[in-house]
Structures are given as structure tokens and as C-alpha cells.
């Protein structure tokens, strides 16, 4: 058995490494680990927000939450939103990436225009869309009526299922550029020789897409889907600002429920319980993603 004796130099380097990471670790503990742990701890209390006074209630919050319809309804809404907007993002994102991969006129300008929705503030996106959606003077109603698609102005955000559809569409519009850029980057690394070989073998454009492009994109798509699923699931700003969860609670996803419980209904403890429950649901995706990333690193 060889004794593993560290040299002085090795110890010196290790110390230096730990000193460099120390600020990160300190900040992490203060603003992430500590709040995370106390979120779980708070969920065992009944706390009134304005006074911040509370009493220990154990698992009562969770018992109430699982028994109450609102949690399950919000979870359902959350899933509908996530699946809806994610599928549109992916479909539209891949399509747009394929188009931009071609040599179209002013390609870099087109790419910038496509990218822009992703980088603007959600606040800006929401303001613009609320103006487009405006029932009296919104351009959208006007265009649709002019095209003969509808007879009466549509209430896009105030009734169901319109509100959900609108939210999903705006979400897709705002976040599909992420998919475009990611897919585009991958497309550029597929060697031309693969397509040449397929062409020699007599594959048409459709066959080339399904036999070459799609398999090559598979890995990156898996990562994108997981990442976007996690991010869409926890989306707050967009939905909160567009509909506020309404009409009534029909677009109230879990993050909105947490916010409402904590800052409108003033039940901090209950809100924490909702947040922890939501995290538990997300944990599945998160672990999947982390494992996938770990695999790639190895």
C-alpha cells in the first residue's frame, strides 16, 4: 500500500483553490443555501406576513395543500402551460433554425430580429402584447376582422380558453429564439459530407431531414427540452403580468399561487409549503438534467 503523502506545493495549491472559491461559497450559503433550508423550515409554520409572527404547525400546511383543490388545479394549469408553450417553442424553433440555416437574404439581420424577443424584458413584451391584444384599439383584432377570421373583437386575456392560449402563444414568441440559437449552433456542426453521402444515395430533402438532421439534433434537443421545461415550469413574470392568473384562477400556475399566498393572502408558511411542493415536482426534471449534463462531462 502506497502512502498518499501530499507535497507542500500540492497543499499550497489546494489552499489557494479554496481561497478562490471562498467568496462563492460564502455568497451561496448566505443567499441560496440558507434561504432554501429556511423555506423548508418556514413551510412548517403558520406565519402572518405583515407581522411575521407565526406558530409551529408541523406538516399541517402540507396536509391542507394536498387536500385543497387549488394546489392540484394550479399544478394542472402549470402543466398545460408548460407543455403547450414548450411544444410550440420547440416546433417553431426547429423550423426557424432550419430556415435561418439556409442562405437567405440578409441572414444576420434576420437572425437579430428573431433573437430580439428573447432578450427584451418580459415587462416590455407584456406591455407590447397587451397593446396588441387590446379589445378596442388593438391591431390584432383589427387585422383578424379585416381578414374575415372573426366578426366581433375577441377578448384575448379576459376569458377562457382565450387567456390560456394567449399566454401560451406569447410565451412561445418570447422563448422560441432560445431554441433557434441552440439548434442553429448544432446545425452548423453537422458535416456537409453526411448530406453529400445521402444525396448520392438518392435521399430527398425530407428523407435527409429525418435520416440525418434529426438524429444529429437529438442530443441537443433533449438538453434544450429539459432546460426549457424547467424554465417554463417556473415562469412567473410573463403570466403574472399578462393575466395575473385570471380570469379568476384559470391561468394561475404554481409560482403565481405561491406569490398570491405569500403577499396577497399573507400566509407565509402556507406559501413556503406551496413553493417546496413545487420544487419537489421540478426536482424530477432537475435531476434528469443534471444527470444528463454529468454524463456529458464524464
Amino acid at each position: 500500500m502506497i502512502k498518499n503523502k501530499q507535497t507542500k506545493l500540492e497543499r499550497h495549491y489546494a489552499t489557494l483553490g479554496m481561497m478562490l472559491i471562498a467568496p462563492t461559497v460564502l455568497v451561496f450559503c448566505a443567499v441560496i443555501v440558507y434561504p432554501l433550508v429556511s423555506a423548508i423550515y418556514l413551510s412548517l409554520f403558520d406565519i402572518y406576513t405583515p407581522t411575521l409572527q407565526g406558530e409551529w404547525v408541523g406538516l399541517d400546511n402540507y396536509r391542507e395543500l394536498l387536500g385543497k383543490g387549488e394546489f392540484w388545479a394550479s399544478l394542472r394549469t402549470n402543466l398545460i402551460w408548460t407543455v403547450g408553450t414548450l411544444s410550440l417553442q420547440i416546433l417553431f424553433g426547429i423550423g426557424m433554425a432550419l430556415v435561418l440555416h439556409q442562405n437567405i437574404w440578409f441572414r444576420s439581420l434576420a437572425r437579430s430580429l428573431i433573437l430580439f424577443p428573447y432578450f427584451i424584458s418580459t415587462v416590455v413584451a407584456v406591455l407590447v402584447w397587451r397593446w396588441l391584444f387590446n379589445d378596442l384599439y388593438g391591431i390584432l383584432n383589427h387585422l383578424m376582422m379585416a381578414a374575415g377570421l372573426i366578426d366581433m373583437p375577441v377578448d384575448y386575456l379576459g376569458s377562457m380558453p382565450n387567456a390560456m392560449i394567449s399566454v401560451i402563444l406569447v410565451g412561445a414568441w418570447k422563448y422560441f429564439p432560445f431554441v433557434v440559437i441552440a439548434v442553429l449552433a448544432r446545425l452548423q456542426t453537422i458535416p456537409d459530407s453526411l448530406y453529400e453521402a445521402a444525396r448520392i444515395d438518392g435521399a430527398g430533402p425530407v428523407a435527409r431531414f429525418f435520416d440525418i438532421t434529426l438524429p444529429q439534433l437529438r442530443d441537443v434537443l433533449v438538453v434544450i427540452i429539459m432546460l426549457r421545461a424547467i424554465w417554463d415550469f417556473k415562469e412567473f413574470d410573463l403570466i403574472f403580468l399578462l393575466t395575473g392568473g385570471g380570469p379568476v384562477t384559470s391561468t394561475q400556475t404554481l409560482p403565481l399561487l405561491v406569490y398570491k399566498e405569500a403577499f396577497s393572502l399573507n400566509n407565509m408558511g402556507m406559501a413556503a409549503a406551496y413553493a417546496v411542493a413545487m420544487m419537489a415536482v421540478m426536482l424530477v426534471f432537475m435531476i434528469l438534467y443534471i444527470r444528463k449534463t454529468g454524463e456529458k462531462d464524464a
Binding site: I21, L36, K234, M279
Partner: peptide, 27 residues
């Protein structure tokens, strides 16, 4: 650098990267 706990730290970073804000906002 190589030191104890380095890899777990990298995982913690990735985990928090995915963490929803609403969980942290109350505490």
C-alpha cells in the same frame, strides 16, 4: 484546482441554476 468537495460544489451550482425564484423569495 483540486480539493475536497470540488465536484459536489459544481453540482450545487448547476442545481441552483435551475432553482425557481419563488422558493427563495419568501426566506
Amino acid at each position: 484546482f483540486k480539493y475536497w468537495g470540488r465536484e459536489s460544489l459544481a453540482f450545487l451550482v448547476l442545481f441552483t441554476y435551475l432553482l425557481p425564484s419563488v422558493v427563495l423569495i419568501i426566506p
